[in-house]
Nucleic acid binder design. Structure first.
Lengths: 332, 332
DNA sequence: ACCCATTTTGCAACCGGTTGCAAAATGGAA
DNA sequence: TTCCATTTTGCAACCGGTTGCAAAATGGGT
């Protein structure tokens, strides 16, 4: 239905090759020819079919954006930044919602059918093997918010979750808490495991600190609330390092329902610093994850892999920092 | 690099047409042939190139998902539902982030280059002309959360925003508020205009009610908070119908900061019933928009347009209802 | 006006599939 | 076994572009 190369060529009275050349930059076309072709093209309202050309060039400019985090508000920011960043570079995001799927086979097949030039896996809960499966299938891949590995097999861009755990521990100790707890996300998520490990390691350096832990079912408000309600049945800890901000907000809600005060009775520190954490009626002390840097860097990396698919895998970790708000008691 | 039809044909010792047929259902292939081909295909790890086939079939199974709402948490739910619904039907969402762009020309060109089979415009702020431009370009389109028109030029699926305005008005009147206000989203958004119109219309039916109005810069927490802070400089109204839930939450934050109580001093009613509205520490009285029905219906519509692109445009509006929580005072 | 190096152009094959058509194979009935 | 209607298969053209190669055009120098 829409006009094709052939239509333009006929109308301009030139060869199809000539038309193709005026629309691929770097090709040799005389000014006269270009004028003629452009005239015919605009008259017909022609624009080249990207998919047809991908057949011969081997490039679709399609990037698979794969995620399973469609319930955590911070991922709206993530999608916003990714789509804008990709668009700015002339790339198109083909979105894949994993829902509860953790087997990459389906997504790989699907994304290969559409010949995506590369894939960004955006998830803090999927294991490194997930992204690796793409690489093994010959698809350039970057795992954003993925698990750090000292000898990474795929590009990983994110934060050092263990270091964040240590950071949270230091912050709680600095504020004089002695009886602390980790209220993590799902135990199977790599981010949960790493944050917990770091948290424990650091606390082990300090004497006389008691530590407990438990895990919520998901990184979600309801899961955080439910888990904290359960904790409140017994004597709760003095302060909790929660798996992330949504979880923290759920916990806050449980605490205020039970009549206790934050930070008076219980302290909370989260992780992410999503927009909502700064809302005045939440005012959560948390650890900021530099989302936009992570995403810029991920895009830069996937773009560079389009030129050089064999690029040696690297881990890019960005520093986090504590954002002090109102849910931890002040230092004495 | 990945194996092609030809590779499979050679390995199986059959024609390329035979291979093609075993992978298109409804085609005539003997069982013996099928076995042979499937064997060769799995040995090579072949899967057909969807883009190449789109060239002859004229179908890419790509659906453009166009939105400018990447800051309203409710759109995370929207994206989740859309991507899942499309995937279930074997369609792939190609995401377009409009950011601040309101001219459809770019998106149309881009989506035509990728030969999308159809487009879903998911936005409550874009004017009907936006979606219409796609239709005029010959691309099947559905405008979800779009403006209702009695003689629609494109398919619109959403709610009757004016009716929601009336509903909010009735609810406030029923609770005995006499001095009420509309705190809308951006004045240019069609949803804002319609909600305001309905709200006024209904209030005009009741005597002795005073109405004021103002508009926030965006459908966002900060905008709602800023706008409410401004209102609080003078004597505020008794109750506010806010443009949506995020705006409401911003307003709530401003109110509690100023030392006033909700619903004691000021009542708030929102619109959307996003997940957060039900969180116990927010507990917002609001009007529920049946998101998942809207999206199911949108997908059903766009799918039906793939078969019949000339399908007569219709408006599908879903009823909303008031969800009573804790931000309006009880009926006397 | 002529020659030659350089640019521009068109031809034709190709990318990875699909499909109308006719030839070949199948299989049931006589 | 033979015949004929029905499937199954392969050939070849096509979808909308790109690109190597050789022919044609250009233009500068003498």
């Amino acid at each position: 239905m829409p006009p094709t190369l052939k239509d333009v060529a006929e109308r301009a009275g030139v060869s199809r090759a000539a038309v193709s050349r005026t629309f691929t930059d770097g090709a040799s076309v005389s000014l006269k020819m270009r004028k003629k072709v452009e005239k015919a093209a605009t008259e017909l309202g022609y624009s080249p079919n990207a998919l047809a050309s991908s057949l011969t060039t081997g490039r679709t400019k399609l990037i698979g954006l794969v995620s399973n985090n469609f319930h955590n508000p911070i991922f709206l920011e993530v999608f916003d930044l990714f789509t804008r960043g990709l668009q700015e570079r002339g790339l198109r995001p083909l979105l894949v919602n994993l829902s509860d799927e953790t087997d990459p086979a389906n997504s790989i097949r699907m994304l290969r059918q559409y010949s995506v030039d590369g894939v960004v896996v955006a998830s803090s809960t999927l294991p490194p093997g997930f992204a690796k499966a793409f690489r093994d299938a010959g698809v350039p891949v970057v795992h954003s918010f993925g698990r750090y590995a000292s000898s990474p097999e795929v590009h990983v861009v994110g934060i050092d979750n263990a270091e964040c755990g240590r950071m949270a521990a230091r912050e709680l100790v600095r504020r004089g808490y002695r009886d602390v707890a980790f209220l993590g996300g799902p135990e199977s998520a790599t981010s949960t495991q790493d944050r917990f490990r770091g948290f424990m390691e650091e606390l082990a350096q300090h004497s006389g600190i008691s530590l407990r832990h438990s895990f919520a079912q998901a990184y979600s408000f309801n899961a955080g609330r439910a888990e904290m309600l359960a904790r409140l049945k017994d004597t709760p800890a003095q302060a909790y390092f929660c798996g992330d901000d949504v979880l923290s907000i759920g916990a806050l809600s449980a605490i205020s329902d039970s009549g206790l005060k934050v930070p008076g009775d219980i302290g909370i520190i989260g992780l992410n610093d999503m927009e909502m954490a700064g809302w005045e009626n939440i005012n959560l002390t948390t650890i900021r994850q530099p989302i936009s840097q992570i995403i810029d860097s991920s895009i830069e990396l996937i773009v560079s892999m389009l030129e050089n698919p064999e690029r040696y895998p690297e881990a890019r970790l960005f520093p986090c920092k504590v954002i002090e708000r109102g849910t931890l008691r002040p230092v004495d």
